[in-house]
């Protein structure tokens, strides 16, 4: 039983301590989310007071690592929101086909399900050989899992349904090999994915990108941090580059909403406007 209420100040102090000691910056995350995760961790670890969590984080790296997993977002799936992938095929792929080389950035890829989805889509559209997919996250544990490409077999039924709804052209099972209760994704899907540790909060531009996918990550950030990350995306995109957000995310809280045009309003696909007179 948690002995007393957890104040905003308690949470700020804890997040500050984590940042000072480990460099992970959760200070501008949604408070309601952080509070819920901290309470869950306290219940799971049998802690009664927020001060216990503070001393455990500072003195016990194994505990700290558990808490970082709790605080980061690791829920994802293949072809999440099939209508979005359908729109990618119909509206975005024709644009990408005009490029000799395509650089894709999955920002906050977690355990990689969406990056694999993108690999499949690019293969089916005949673009994979001129594509490089940068799949980044600050959570190394999740990245390692993504790199392995081993997923639970019981999810495959749902992923297959998503894939079919998204306009998939093949039998989904051709993209993985089953082994008891898990599946391993085909090696050919990993060939052009670069898995890299990149922190949206603290790291900067690393390449010129044609299309950025960052879906259901920004909802965890407060307005200031959303703005900061939106600037990073804007700087990373080429002129005419494409930004894909989650179905409940928007540019309307960002200072940059005027700098994009809508490619698909419902699926939250935006195109960076061309900057004129730029030499």
């Amino acid at each position: 039983m948690i002995s007393k209420d957890i104040s905003e100040l308690d949470i700020s102090l804890l997040l500050e301590a984590i940042f000072q000691k480990y460099g992970y910056d959760f200070r501008q995350y949604s408070q309601a989310h952080i509070r819920r995760r901290i309470i869950n961790r306290m219940v799971l670890s049998g802690l009664e007071d927020i001060s216990d969590i503070q001393s455990n984080v500072l003195n016990d790296e194994a505990f700290a690592s558990k808490l970082f997993q709790d605080l980061s977002i690791t829920v994802t799936e293949m072809f999440r929101d099939p209508c979005f992938y359908k729109s990618l095929r119909e509206n975005v792929i024709p644009v990408l086909k005009t490029y000799p080389f395509i650089k894709i950035w999955h920002a906050g890829c977690s355990t990689g399900e969406e990056a694999y989805s993108m690999s499949i889509l690019m293969q089916e559209e005949g673009l994979y050989n001129r594509t490089i997919i940068y799949a980044t996250d600050f959570n190394q544990h999740a990245l390692n899992k993504a790199k392995e490409g081993i997923f639970s077999n019981k999810m495959m039924k749902e992923y297959t349904a998503n894939y079919q709804l998204s306009g998939g052209k093949e039998s989904f099972s051709k993209y993985y090999t089953s082994n008891y209760d898990s599946v391993i994704m085909n090696q050919s899907l990993k060939k052009n994915i670069v898995w890299a540790n990149h922190n949206l909060v603290t790291d900067s531009v690393f390449a010129e990108i044609h299309i950025i996918l960052c879906r259901n990550v920004l909802i965890y950030f407060n307005n200031d941090l959303q703005n900061k990350v939106q600037s990073l995306f804007y700087e990373s995109l080429i002129n005419g580059g494409i930004l894909c957000l989650g179905s409940k995310e928007s540019l309307c809280f960002s200072n940059l909403s005027e700098e994009y045009s809508e490619m698909d309003k419902n699926q939250k696909i935006f195109k960076k406007k061309y900057i004129e007179n730029e030499l």
């Binding site: 949604s30 259901n216 909802i219 989650g246």
Partner: peptide
């Protein structure tokens, strides 16, 4: 204000 999450 509202926050949305895709947590478990």
């Amino acid at each position: 204000t509202f926050s949305l999450t895709i947590d478990e």
